[in-house]
C-alpha cells in the first residue's frame, strides 16, 4: 500500500516534494517471529503495538533488550520472513554492537539506545537482497556518553531511515557515519535530526552515497542547536556521487540555531567526480576509469573503515564493487 512516511521536523513548501516520501510498503498480514532464533543470552519477547516516527504501525513485534555487559554483541538477522523488531540498548560500559541483515524480505527495526556514562559503537549493516525492504529508526538519548553509529545501507529496493539523537548533557558526543548505495530503481530516504540540547555537545554526521541506474534518494539532515547549547559543535557533510544520468538526488541539510557561540557547518556536494582530482590521479598514470574507481573506493573506505571487523569490511566493499 502506498504510504506517506518519514516527515521532516521543519516543513517547507510541499512543491519541493521533500517533506515526506510516498512509497509502496507491502502489508504484513500475519506476523510470526518463530523463525527468528536469537543466539545469546538476551531478553527476547513478543510484544504488542509497534509505533514509529517513520509512520508505520504494527500489532506485534519482536523485542530484544540488550543490557550490555560484555564487550561485543553480534546479532545477525536472516530476513526471509517479515521482521518487526525493537531493540533496546542500555549500557553502562564501553562496547560494540553489531547488527547485520541478510535475506530477501522486509525488515522494520527500531533501535533505542539510552546511554548514561557509556561509550557505544553501533554498527548496522544492511546486506539484504535487491528486492528486500530495510526500514530502520534510530533513537539515541545520551547523557555523559559518546556514541558512534556506523550505518551501511546497501541492500533492498526501499531503504528508509530515521534518526533522532538527543544530546542531553554537556560533553556528550554523537557521530554518524552513513554509507548508502542506490541501484536499479531503489528508493532511499534518510531523515535525521540531532538535537544539541546542552553546552559543549558535539555531533558530526558524514553521509556518503553512490547512486546508479534510476535510483532516487532524499537526504534530510537537521542539526538543531537549542538555546543553551553554547560552545557546541555540529558538522554535517553529505556527499553524493551520481554514477548514472538517470539517478536523482535531493538533499535538505537543515541547520537551526538558537544559540550564539556555536560552531555549526554543513556541506553538501552532489554530481560528478571532482575534475581536478581526476586530473591529479591521471597525471599519476591511472586511466579515467581507474581514477574514478579509486575515488569511489576512497569514499566507501572512509565509512567502511569505521567498522573494526576486517572481514566484514571486505564483504561490504566487494558487494558494492560488484554493483558499480
Amino acid at each position: 500500500m502506498e504510504k506517506i512516511l518519514n516527515s521532516t521536523p521543519v516543513r517547507t513548501t510541499n512543491k519541493f516534494k521533500i517533506n515526506d516520501i510516498k512509497v509502496d510498503i507491502p502489508d504484513i498480514e500475519f506476523i510470526n517471529f518463530d523463525d527468528y532464533k536469537i543466539d545469546g543470552n538476551y531478553n527476547v519477547s513478543i510484544k504488542d503495538k509497534f509505533n514509529s516516527r517513520i509512520g508505520l504501525d504494527y500489532n506485534k513485534y519482536l523485542n530484544i533488550d540488550l543490557d550490555v555487559n560484555k564487550d561485543n554483541i553480534n546479532l545477525e538477522f536472516n530476513v526471509n520472513k517479515p521482521l518487526v523488531l525493537n531493540i533496546n540498548i542500555n549500557s553502562s560500559i564501553d562496547s560494540t554492537v553489531n547488527i547485520k541483515y541478510i535475506g530477501n524480505n522486509i525488515a522494520i527495526t527500531k533501535i533505542n539506545t539510552s546511554l548514561n556514562n557509556s561509550n557505544i559503537k553501533l554498527n548496522v549493516i544492511n546486506l539484504l537482497d535487491k528486492e528486500a525492504y530495510n526500514i530502520i529508526e534510530f533513537t539515541n538519548t545520551l547523557v555523559d556518553s559518546n556514541m558512534t553509529t556506523n550505518f551501511i545501507d546497501i541492500g533492498g529496493k526501499v531503504k528508509l531511515s530515521n534518526l533522532l539523537t538527543d544530546l542531553n548533557s554537556s560533553n556528550s558526543t554523537y557521530n554518524l557515519n552513513n554509507l548508502y548505495l542506490g541501484i536499479n530503481e531503489d528508493i532511499i530516504d534518510m531523515n535525521y535530526l540531532i538535537n544539541l540540547n546542552k553546552p559543549n555537545t558535539n555531533s558530526e554526521l558524514v553521509v556518503e552515497g553512490l547512486l546508479n541506474d534510476k535510483s532516487k534518494k532524499s537526504f534530510k539532515g537537521t542539526l538543531d542547536f537549542k538555546e543553551g547549547s553554547s560552545d557546541s559543535i555540529g558538522h554535517e557533510n553529505e556527499n553524493c556521487i551520481l554514477l548514472s544520468d538517470e539517478a536523482k538526488s535531493k538533499s535538505l541539510p537543515m541547520m537551526l540555531c538558537h544559540e550564539e557561540s556555536v560552531d555549526g557547518a554543513h556541506g553538501v556536494s552532489t554530481g560528478k567526480i571532482d575534475e581536478e582530482k581526476l586530473f591529479y590521479l591521471m597525471s599519476r598514470g591511472l586511466s579515467k576509469d581507474e581514477s574514478i574507481r579509486l575515488i569511489l573506493n576512497a569514499n566507501i573506505n572512509k565509512i567502511v573503515n569505521c567498522i573494526d571487523d576486517v572481514n566484514l569490511q571486505q564483504e561490504i566493499i566487494d558487494i558494492i564493487n560488484k554493483e558499480i
Binding site: L243, D245, S249, T270, K272
Partner: peptide
C-alpha cells in the same frame, strides 16, 4: 538555514556550504 537541493543530472557540479 533550510536549503532544498534537487539534482537530476549526473553531469553537474553542485556544492552547498553553510556555517553559523
Amino acid at each position: 538555514t533550510i536549503p532544498v537541493n534537487n539534482i537530476e543530472t549526473s553531469d553537474c557540479v553542485f556544492s552547498h556550504e553553510a556555517s553559523i
